[in-house]
């Protein structure tokens, strides 16, 4: 059976690489999309969110933020602005980042970087969501 090759790359490094993948679920710009082997060539922008990679019985989750995804010849290439494995997310730090971003947005008068603070807030929220999803799933299927 055909399978997918997945590569997730950021400007700084190759974050993730895997062969024999049966399905990828990505946060596309027009909503979540699932990619199975033999998918038609596709290019889509990505929203911040969770990207799930299924192979065999296992499943891995990664956070991606911004960038885009290309599917061609059973090869999925993600060029993300930010990407990290769900297991690498530091929940406490993400929580702190969210608080400081919210703080910055409340004191609008002083800060000129509203856009920046909003982006930081969004990224922190996505991070927390991905980390939380992982924990919930972990409880249901401890062997996962």
């Amino acid at each position: 059976m055909a399978s997918l090759t997945v590569e997730i790359v950021t400007g700084e490094q190759v974050v993730y690489q895997k062969d024999d993948v049966s399905m990828v679920v990505a946060p596309g710009a027009d909503g979540s999309l699932g990619i199975l082997p033999n998918h038609a060539p596709l290019v889509t922008l990505l929203h911040g969110g969770e990207l799930r990679v299924k192979s065999g019985a296992g499943e891995e989750a990664l956070l991606v933020n911004g960038g885009f995804l290309e599917v061609v010849n059973n090869k999925v290439v993600v060029l993300a602005d930010t990407a990290e494995r769900a297991s690498d997310i530091d929940v406490e730090r993400a929580e702190a980042a969210r608080r400081s971003a919210e703080e910055a947005l409340r004191n609008r008068g002083e800060t000129q970087d509203i856009e920046e603070a909003q982006q930081a807030l969004q990224l922190a929220a996505v991070r927390l969501r991905v980390a939380r999803n992982r924990r919930n799933r972990g409880q249901e299927r401890p062997a996962g």
């Binding site: 596309g28 060539p41 596709l42 290019v43 889509t44 922008l45 061609v72």
Partner: peptide, 22 residues
Amino acid sequence: AQDVNYIFEPDAPTVLNEILPR
């Protein structure tokens, strides 16, 4: 020169205009 007919989401100009600055 691969001549691939891509599906674009949302559409080609939007995607390319995101990619070019990167």
